[in-house]
Design a protein around this nucleic acid. Structure first.
Lengths: 267, 267
DNA sequence: CGTCATATTGACTTTAGTCAATAGAAGTGG
DNA sequence: CCACTTCTATTGACTAAAGTCAATATGACG
């Protein structure tokens, strides 16, 4: 059960996602489309992969959402990353040994597992794609750092606002925001595990955000009522998401600004 | 002023550092040694690089220590990463556009700037080294995630203990711990900016750690009095640092375990 | 209609932050 | 080597943010 219209649409999502940032050549697209996908449906909180000695796949989200978390020795849980449709997770696993992290579906999700062996072969035969992989890993890292900054230096209310901003822009650029509304299958307890705060406190912050007219909550749909105000409150700057500057020429690729010598070095 | 015994010793540090994890071929070492270094002395808190539009270098620490931080819009500061001698920072800048982060020396430090253009060329001519770069980026990301987990789910006392454990093992493996003592040029305010807590609270936690017989502090030298206890208190697991399991065969390289199909995929 | 999971509240505790003063330590110029 | 300056560390008193516990409300669902 490997190649079907449904499955290929997973890779198409990834391609569309990446192309927002820079053009992929036809050859790259072909290589990506050749990747073998093992697609499965997962339910809320279902474990997709545990990064122990044996996990040798990257995880492409087709629908729903996936998060990566660490179980703390004392039983707590810290969510380390969120992945939405078109995102590929665990590419770092291509070069890292076990990290002990776990991937789980946040809600009912369609997930494709891609063996690292296949990705490695692809990368080996097309070194250009190595830069894309590198870029994806680096961009993931940038998100983690931003979470770190928000967690360390912003109070919970703003931290949650910041998180919603991130989700908003990521999903919007991926075409998944309609009517200023995004659907993220997260419960308040999950939000707490992202932000490092208690469920009760998440609840109170969300209420405050609603009271302040910034968002509205249905089931697990967040409606943004005033994105500008939300951005302001969260002091959100999308720079770390590496958006294409509006009006800018398309990127030369995951930046290849390396061909001109750094002026600073010639002093 | 590019190639001198002193400068090459910077790359030797990096090579030694990497070789702890897996063997580098002679050819790889040669390529690394060919990288042009722009070496400079920096003082405490001196800005080394700001990752704005124009920063096109990676940063190799030769002595002292370097941290990466983000200035929060409200003036606060969050330190995002620490780099010790033999570490190379900002390799992610090879593929990322500006992130707005800043690199600064934590104390008097000898730093080599390496133009991304040179690294890119090296990687292009030796795709194997692309995996090493990828691995370094991924390992940095793993450290960020671990900080995130510690910050989110451990109280300050344990978080600081955890941080000290990380520094201890990283420096120890790099041969920079003598008499169970490590020298890290961090002031209590800096520690606060790493852990996301106030200076006063850092002070109180450090006092507690001393009172509990876990560490001793001189100037900016931390003497570990009981590493086992410290590890226990911090619930520290060095897995994320990707240490070589004791007694394990040397890694095949930044893991190339990709050649056997994942058993899970054949179900 | 009852059940189960999640969300919400209230009362109270704990952790950590803030402010301001004091003590120490390192460096400087004489 | 001392007086002085300056930066950092340490304290204490108080405040604020966030956690905990336990009860209650809501909402989806069979």
């Amino acid at each position: 059960m490997n190649i079907s219209p449904q499955h290929s649409s997973g890779i198409e999502l990834l391609i569309r996602n990446w192309q927002q940032f820079a053009p992929l050549t036809e050859e790259h697209r072909r290589s990506l489309r050749r990747l073998p996908l093992n697609v499965k449906e997962h339910g809320r909180n279902a474990t997709i992969a545990i990064l122990d000695q044996d996990t040798l796949v990257s995880i492409l989200v087709i629908s729903g959402s996936v998060f990566r978390y660490k179980v703390m020795p004392d039983g707590g849980r810290q969510i380390l990353a969120m992945h939405f449709p078109g995102d590929i997770a665990n590419l770092d696993g291509l070069v890292l040994e076990a990290t002990g992290h776990t991937f789980a579906a946040a809600g009912p999700s369609l997930i494709a597992a891609i063996p690292h062996s296949a990705i490695s072969q692809m990368v080996a035969s097309q070194p250009d794609l190595a830069r894309w992989v590198m870029w994806e890993i680096a961009r993931d890292a940038a998100k983690s750092r931003e979470w770190l900054a928000a967690m360390g230096r912003q109070p919970a209310y703003q931290q949650i606002a910041h998180l919603i901003c991130e989700f908003y822009f990521r999903m919007k650029w991926a075409g998944q925001v309609h009517d200023q509304t995004l659907e993220v299958d997260l419960y308040q307890a999950d939000l707490g595990d992202i932000c490092g705060i208690s469920t009760v406190h998440v609840n109170r912050c969300l209420q405050a955000l609603r009271a302040d007219g910034l968002i509205t909550l249905h089931n697990h749909k967040v409606a943004i009522r005033d994105i500008d105000a939300l951005v302001r409150v969260a002091m959100f700057d999308s720079l770390y998401l590496q958006p294409l500057a509006s009006g800018a020429e398309p990127r030369r690729y995951p930046p290849s600004r390396d061909n001109s010598p750094d002026p600073r070095l010639s002093n």
